[in-house]
Structures are given as structure tokens and as C-alpha cells.
Design a protein around this nucleic acid. Structure first.
Length: 821
RNA sequence: GCCGGGGUGGCGAAACGGUAAACGCAGGGGACUUAAAAUCCCCCGGGUUCACUCCCUUCUGGGUUCAAAUCCCAGCCCCGGCACCA
């Protein structure tokens, strides 16, 4: 190891020293009074981790370092930066791990939190440990339950029986956002549909606002787009089809469908209900026929992964019943097929095989009629279709609407349907209400009491928290009921409103409710009588910058926006968007491959910090590639930043050792000022990799030829490096004679434009766009002089020789281009 | 299929429409040293040449422009999200 030289840079000694001093001096922690009186507050937030038993992984460290660099930069600029961290410690992940190792999460989690805290301190984050949160602490989840009660009282929390996603491995229901391509996001098991009574938050009531605000909030584009896609707004119409009896008369029942192409209704040759559709029983009025019954049972048993495979052959069964196409007046058969999903639209479609590929395939499969009702220009109305046609054109075979261009046909046909009472324009969304019930143990109990006479009653605020009891057998089961239902002495209680015997809700809430409001809690952790203090919230929120992973684009980031809007509407907050700026960081991979346990290429931070120090690790992570795009961790590459910090250390110490300070070399001084300018521009934009490259370049100039720098040449570099390598910067700052922390007192250097200006510039000389020479001229040389000088170049002359000069392009301080022909 | 983001040396990557490859890793050569480490200097896309030079090179093919990695059109490939969404 190279750290043994007595005067040399010893990262672990420097880091231990400063981590201890920061803690002792409270450098990074606010007191309540400081939070209240802070001038120029800056709330720097990063996504809090869940404390796994494995400890922090490199992805966490990458994200936290990038966010910490941002916070430290703002602080070096003189802002009062609040940078809290906490633990998202409830949830299935922690619980599953506890089950695996056969311990109680109540014992396990504190140990994991302790380990995480140690690791977080070790990487040198500027965390305010006075204001940490742990979602499993009753003092925290008391207010999570309070949030639930606010929504309940506002009519935004509703218990209803609905088809929900059931993970047979996790043995709990999941929100739609937690189902990835039909499988549980946690364990990958295909989810099943179950009908159980669950608590839902009515996020769909906020859908238009959630969507509209996305237009103007300053977020990473990828995240913004992911939310837009997830919300999935589409415009179309709801059309109503009367069901017919055996004699062709109307039964009075109507089947509503949602379609984005109401203009193709003349081509609707059959109708399809989802197998779960409530009208399936009714339309097969003779009672469920055997084939219908069998098909429905089969579809129900199928998991969503299997069912949603696009490439499989379509299946379905005819009900034998008919309804009337309201446009043509013709009877059309009603089918059941699992390609229609109960969870979207009305769970029923009008099938237009001529102009929808899925309907086309189904019609071919079951020999149903295919009618063309749209024709491209120049295509006759009777040309048969080989596949569904969805392109431009005009309506055909559509009665009075023949010839209507598709650009206006949706509107025209919808109006006609509305006039005749069988349709209306409708907007539809993919977003569903947020199912927050979980039939598991490790979460905050939902604060509801069921009373036979009063129904569900919210636990009064004074009775919160409803404490999660210690439960030795917390293993979930198939029943769809939480393990808490095994603890009778816990769930038996009195009705808060009438005092009768009553029963607590035994489900716990989704972890995403814990994390949906945590940023509101951080500044107010000094208060135990309110979730968030009005004055502090006004001062510190909304969050100035939020940095985190895009994997939460439609989970946490959507839910927290929703909850913030609700709390705003209920008068608790005076803003409705929680984060002024959100930036998604990239993903890091190792040696060109995704890190995974099975590949055995998971990087552990501790040994790397041991060998090179946290400063080097931080600097390297930020140097690997653009922070918002991620990077490839190559073990050999860490040598670059490691050597850089060593050379910085040597240079500052050498400058200090030479005694009286001389004047800076003019060329070096210019480079230093150019570097200050570049780093100041790039760091706030999270362009860390190029900022570090500029610092390296600058240090190379400072040390060129092995010269000994003077203090004025190296001192400004120390704060520029400080966001990346805070410990070594703090140590060098102290050695430079400063008595305050580098992070106090706005240490960031300012650049002098005059000193950053070059006295001469290099001009590229092109002939016909090809580089033929480059010349050095004094700044301020006129165009005529530059062009004249360019002409005298031997190589340029050779290329101009004998050719006719047509034009000369001159770009100030950049190039001359002779166009010859 | 739809929506994002990408494709540049051996590798990680730079580059307001204006000298492609900054910075770093790896590699080669040299200085200092008894030696090693550290440090400093030089070379480092391909071809051509003794050299000067010249030609080629930013996924492919077209286009705009005095000038394109960058802008436009068409296509291919990789990564991420959504997906029988009607």
C-alpha cells in the first residue's frame, strides 16, 4: 500500500479525522433554531434507501454521492443546505428477508439501520443526522396513519371489492404500479386476479392535475414521459349497444364499450366481453352454458403473464346472445374472450376486425365477418382486407357518413351517436386507483375500526399511532387476510364512535404510503405533536432538488405528487407539487455488465473505501460518465482519480512548504480562472465528469514540468474539488490556514473574466472545408489580417494555387475557410 | 407495436454547426533512482511517406451547408419504460 509515507496522503486517516470532527462540531446538522432561522435555505433531497441486510450497494452510493455533490456545491456557494437521509424500512422486502433468516423484522431492522448508518457516514455524505426518519418508528408511522385518516375523512380513501393483483408468492395484493408485465415487481411471480375488499386511494380523481402539472415541472424528460405514459390518457367515445332477446326485441340491458375509433362503428361485426364482465351471466340468459362456464373458469385461472402474451392464438367462446349495432341496426353476436381485459375501459369492446388488428385475428380465428369501413384514397370500398387497416382515408360502407375523412370522422360520428342517445365522447385513462392494502405484517396498520353498527370508523387522531404489535408467527398465508388477524387481543377493540365491541382492520398499508410523504417530515422531526410544522414547511419546501432513480417514475414519484396535492387541497400545504426539480441519475454497471448476485459481479463499497478512500471512490464514480446517464465501473479506472487526489495533496503541501508566496505564473493563473469558470458552470448542471476532467487538466498545468506551484495557484482548486472529495479538501483547507470548515463561509472561488481570457487564439485554416493549417494570432487581430496571414502559409498556398477563389468564410477567433473551385 | 435514451480509439468517455478523440485507464518509449515506487517528459484511430504531406475514420445510406459526430429524411442495432389498453 502506498499510504505509509509519513508526509503522504493517507485517505483513511484524513477521512476518519474529518468524519469525527464534522460530527463533533455538528457541521452538517441543524438545530431546530438553525432550521427556523436559516437564510437562503436549500432542501437537497435524495431517495431514502431501504436498509437491506446486505448493506449499501454501489448503486446507492452512486446516487447519494451525486446528490451530495450537488448539496455540497450549493453549500460552498453559501446556501443553507438541508440534506437529510432516512430509512424506508417497512415493506415486503425486509419482511421476506426476515422470514428467510427466521428472525423477527423488529430485531433485524435496527441492526440493518445501524449498518447503513455506519456506511453512510463512511462515504462522507453531508447528512443531517439530527433529522433522520425511520418509517418503522411509531413516532413516524403515527403520521403515516394520520395521512390515511386525512384521505379517509376527505372521501379519498375507499374500501371496495374489486379485481386486484394477487401475488401468490408474496401472498398479498399489489398496486398496478407494482406489477411489471403481469408479474410481481418484487419476486417476478405472475400475479393472479382476485376479488377482495381492499382500501383504495382515489388517485384517479387527480388524474387531470397530475397530467397537467407535468407540462411545466422541471423534471428529467425520461421520468416525465414515463408518468405521462403510465397515466395513459386517451380520447374516444363510450357507445351503448342494446342486448337482444331470442325474438330480436331489446331486453332493456345495454352493453357499454369504450373505443378510440367510434367512427368505425359501422364495421363492428361482433362484440366481446371480458371473461370477468358482470354481464356475462345475464346475457347468456338461459343460465351459463357449459362452454361459456368452462371458458370463464379457464380464463380466471390463467395468470396475467400467460394471458397477456400478444403472440398467442386468440381464444374465446360465443355466448349465443346478440346485441344490436346501433349504427347499422343489425344484430351482432356477443362473444367472450380473454384478449379483452376487465381492467381497461368498460371491460367490453365493439369488435371492428377491418380496422383493429386484434379483432381481425379473432375474426379470422372464428370465421366472423370482416367489413371495410375505411378506405385509403384510391381504394375501392369493396376491396377485401388482408389485415386491419388503420391508415388515413375516408369512411366507406358507413351510410350517410361515406366519404367523411378520418381526420374529422371521430368527431362527426360521435356527435351523431350522441344525438341519437347511444354514445358520448369520453376520455379514458390507464391509471387506476391506488390499492394500498397489504395482507402482510411488516407495515403500519391501516387505522380503521369496523363496528357492526357504525361501519368503518377512522381511528381518532388522539389514539394514533395504532402500534404494530410484535408477532412471532408473521408468515403470510393464502387466505387473503393479514397475519395480524391471528392476534385477537390486538384486533379486538371498542368502536371509537359508539363504544360497542369492534374489530381493527388487520391489513397494513403499502410501503409507498410511508415514502409518499417522508420529505415533509424531515424538517419537522423535532415535533412529535404534528406531522409537519407549518412554519418550517413554508421555509424549506417544496424540495429544491430531488435526485433519484427512474425505477420510481410511476411509483413513489407519482404517489408523492398525489399525496402532496391532496394535503394541499385539505389546507395542510401551500404548494401542490413536492419537488421543484427532479433529476434521474443513470445506472451503473460493472466491467461492462449489469451487476447481479447470480453473476457474482456485485461491487461492495467497503473494500474499495478501505483501499483507496471514500474521496477517491466518490470522485471516480462521478468521473466515469455523465451522472444522468450512468457509467461503467472498471476497477483499473479508479487509478485516475486516486492519482489526481494524490497530486493535489502533494501540490498544496509543496506550495505551503516553499515559504513566502510568490506571484502566480500568468499562464497557470489563466488556466485556474478558466477552470473556475468551467466547474462553476458544469457542477450545478450535474455535469460532474467534465468538471472533474477540467480540474485534472488544471492540475496538470499547475504541475507542468514538475514545477513547484505557489499558493495562489492551488488554493482555489481546493473548494472546487471539495464537493467530490470533501475530506481531503477540508484537510488541505485547514493546512492552508483556514480556521472554519471549507463548507462554511461561502468558500467557492469566483473567477475573474479578465484573468481567464487568452491573449492569443489558434485559427484553423481550411480550404474547401478541409484543415490545411492552423495559425496562432493575437486576440483582436482583424479579419483582414487573419486572412492575409492565412494566405502566407505554405501548405495553404499549395492548395489555393491555380484555383479560383470563390469565397472566404471567416469565423471570429475560430477559423478561415477558403472556398475555391 | 408505442414512448424515452443511446451507437465516437484497445477501454470509460469529450466536443456552442467550425482543428473529432479533451480528461482518464490500459499500452509503448525516455528522464530521475543502486533499485523499486512515486514524479516528470514523449508516443499512442487506420492507411501512406525517410520526412513534409496526403487519403480514410464518429452505426448504414441519402440530404441541407463554405463546413455535419452535431441539423433533416430513411433504415439497422443496443439499453430502459409501457404493452391484446380497444
Amino acid at each position: 500500500m502506498v499510504n505509509e509515507d509519513r508526509d503522504g496522503y493517507d485517505p483513511s486517516a484524513v477521512e476518519r479525522k474529518w468524519q469525527r470532527l464534522w460530527e463533533e462540531r455538528g457541521t452538517n446538522a441543524f438545530t431546530l433554531q438553525e432550521l427556523k432561522s436559516a437564510k437562503d435555505p436549500f432542501y437537497n433531497l435524495m431517495m431514502f434507501p431501504y436498509p437491506s441486510a446486505e448493506g449499501l450497494h454501489m448503486g446507492n452510493i452512486y446516487a447519494f454521492t451525486g446528490a451530495d455533490v450537488h448539496g455540497r456545491y450549493q453549500r460552498l456557494r453559501g446556501r443553507a443546505v438541508f440534506e437529510p437521509i432516512g430509512f424506508d424500512a417497512f415493506g415486503i422486502h425486509s419482511e421476506n428477508f426476515a422470514l428467510k433468516v427466521g428472525q423477527n423484522p423488529m430485531d433485524l431492522i435496527p441492526r440493518n439501520v445501524e449498518n447503513f448508518t455506519r456506511q453512510l457516514k463512511r462515504i462522507g455524505g453531508m447528512f443531517d443526522w439530527n433529522h433522520s426518519v425511520d418509517t418503522t418508528d411509531p413516532a413516524y408511522y403515527k403520521w403515516t396513519q394520520w395521512v390515511f385518516v386525512q384521505l379517509y375523512n376527505a372521501g379519498l380513501a375507499e374500501r371496495k371489492e374489486a379485481p386486484v393483483n394477487w401475488c401468490p408468492s408474496c401472498m398479498t395484493v399489489l398496486a398496478n404500479e407494482q406489477v411489471i408485465a403481469g408479474a410481481c415487481e418484487r419476486c417476478g411471480t405472475p400475479v393472479e386476479q382476485r376479488r377482495i375488499a381492499q382500501w383504495f386511494f382515489k388517485i384517479t380523481e387527480y388524474v387531470e392535475r397530475l397530467l397537467a402539472n407535468l407540462e411545466h415541472i422541471d423534471w428529467s424528460e425520461t421520468t416525465r414521459k414515463a408518468q405521462v405514459n403510465w397515466i395513459g390518457r386517451s380520447e374516444g367515445a363510450r357507445l351503448s349497444f342494446p342486448v337482444l332477446d331470442d325474438h330480436g326485441g331489446e331486453t332493456g340491458t345495454r352493453i357499454d364499450v369504450y373505443t378510440t375509433r367510434p367512427d368505425t362503428v359501422f364495421g363492428a361485426t361482433y362484440m366481446v366481453l371480458a371473461p370477468e364482465h358482470p354481464l356475462v351471466d345475464e346475457v347468456t340468459h338461459e343460465g351459463l352454458s357449459a362452454p361459456v362456464y368452462a371458458y370463464r373458469e379457464k380464463a380466471r385461472a390463467k395468470d396475467l403473464v400467460e394471458r397477456q402474451k400478444v403472440d398467442k392464438t386468440k381464444t374465446g367462446v360465443s355466448t349465443g346472445a346478440y346485441c344490436r349495432n346501433p349504427a347499422t341496426g343489425e344484430p351482432i353476436p356477443i362473444w367472450i374472450a380473454d384478449y379483452v381485459l376487465m381492467g381497461y375501459g368498460t371491460g367490453a369492446i365493439m369488435a371492428v376486425p377491418g380496422h383493429d388488428q386484434r379483432d381481425f385475428e379473432f375474426a379470422k380465428q372464428f370465421d366472423l365477418p370482416i367489413h371495410r369501413v375505411v378506405a385509403a384514397p384510391g381504394v375501392a370500398a369493396d376491396v377485401p382486407l388482408e389485415e386491419a387497416y388503420v391508415g388515413p382515408g375516408a369512411l366507406v360502407n358507413s351510410g350517410a357518413f361515406d366519404g367523411t375523412d378520418v381526420s374529422e370522422s371521430v368527431r362527426v360520428v360521435t356527435e351523431w351517436a350522441a344525438e341519437n342517445g347511444w354514445g358520448e365522447a369520453q376520455v379514458n385513462y390507464r391509471l387506476h386507483d391506488w390499492c394500498i392494502s397489504r395482507q402482510r405484517y411488516w407495515g403500519p396498520p391501516i387505522p380503521i375500526i369496523y363496528c357492526d353498527s357504525c361501519g368503518p370508523v377512522a381511528v381518532p387522531e388522539g389514539d394514533l399511532p395504532v402500534v404494530l404489535p410484535r408477532l412471532e408467527n408473521f408468515k403470510p398465508d393464502e387466505s387473503g387476510v393479514s397475519p395480524l388477524a391471528r392476534l385477537e387481543e390486538w384486533y379486538r377493540t371498542k368502536c371509537p364512535s359508539c363504544g360497542a365491541q369492534a374489530r381493527r382492520e388487520t391489513d397494513v398499508s403499502d410501503t409507498f404510503l410511508d415514502s409518499g410523504w417522508y420529505f415533509l417530515r424531515y424538517p419537522s422531526t423535532d415535533f412529535d405533536d404534528r406531522p409537519f410544522d407549518r412554519e418550517l414547511t413554508k421555509k424549506w419546501l417544496p424540495v429544491d432538488t430531488y435526485i433519484g432513480g427512474n425505477e420510481h417514475a410511476v411509483l413513489h414519484l407519482l404517489y408523492s405528487r398525489f399525496l402532496t396535492m391532496v394535503l394541499h387541497d385539505l389546507g395542510h400545504l401551500d404548494f401542490e407539487e413536492p419537488y421543484d426539480v427532479f433529476r434521474a441519475h443513470g445506472l451503473i454497471i460493472a466491467e461492462g455488465a449489469k451487476m447481479s448476485k447470480s453473476k457474482g459481479n456485485v461491487l461492495l463499497p467497503d473494500p474499495i473505501i478501505e483501499e483507496f478512500g471514500a474521496d477517491t471512490l466518490r470522485t471516480y464514480l462521478m468521473f466515469m460518465g455523465p451522472f444522468e446517464e450512468g457509467g461503467d465501473y472498471r476497477h483499473e479506472g479508479i487509478q485516475g482519480p486516486f492519482g489526481f487526489l494524490h497530486r493535489l495533496w502533494d501540490s498544496v503541501n509543496a506550495a505551503l512548504a516553499t515559504g513566502p508566496d510568490g506571484p502566480p505564473d500568468p499562464d497557470v493563473e489563466r488556466k485556474v480562472h478558466q477552470t473556475i469558470r468551467q466547474v462553476t458552470e458544469q457542477v450545478p448542471k450535474l455535469q460532474y465528469n467534465t468538471a472533474i476532467a477540467a480540474l485534472m487538466e488544471c492540475l496538470n498545468s499547475v504541475r507542468a514540468g514538475g514545477r513547484t506551484p505557489v499558493r495562489a495557484e492551488v488554493e482555489p482548486l481546493v473548494p472546487l474539488v471539495a464537493p467530490f472529495a470533501p475530506h481531503v479538501a477540508e484537510e488541505l483547507w485547514e493546512r492552508l490556514g483556514h480556521t472554519r470548515s471549507i463548507f462554511d463561509g461561502a468558500s467557492w472561488p469566483s473567477f475573474d473574466p479578465a484573468k481567464a481570457t487568452e491573449s492569443s487564439v489558434t485559427i484553423a485554416i481550411q480550404v474547401n472545408g478541409k484543415l490545411r493549417a492552423s495559425i496562432e494570432v493575437a486576440k483582436g487581430t482583424t479579419e483582414a489580417e487573419v486572412v492575409a496571414a492565412a494566405r502566407t502559409d505554405e501548405n495553404v498556398q499549395r492548395h489555393l494555387d491555380g484555383k479560383q477563389e470563390r469565397k472566404v468564410i471567416y469565423v471570429k477567433e475560430r477559423l478561415v475557410n477558403f472556398v475555391v473551385g
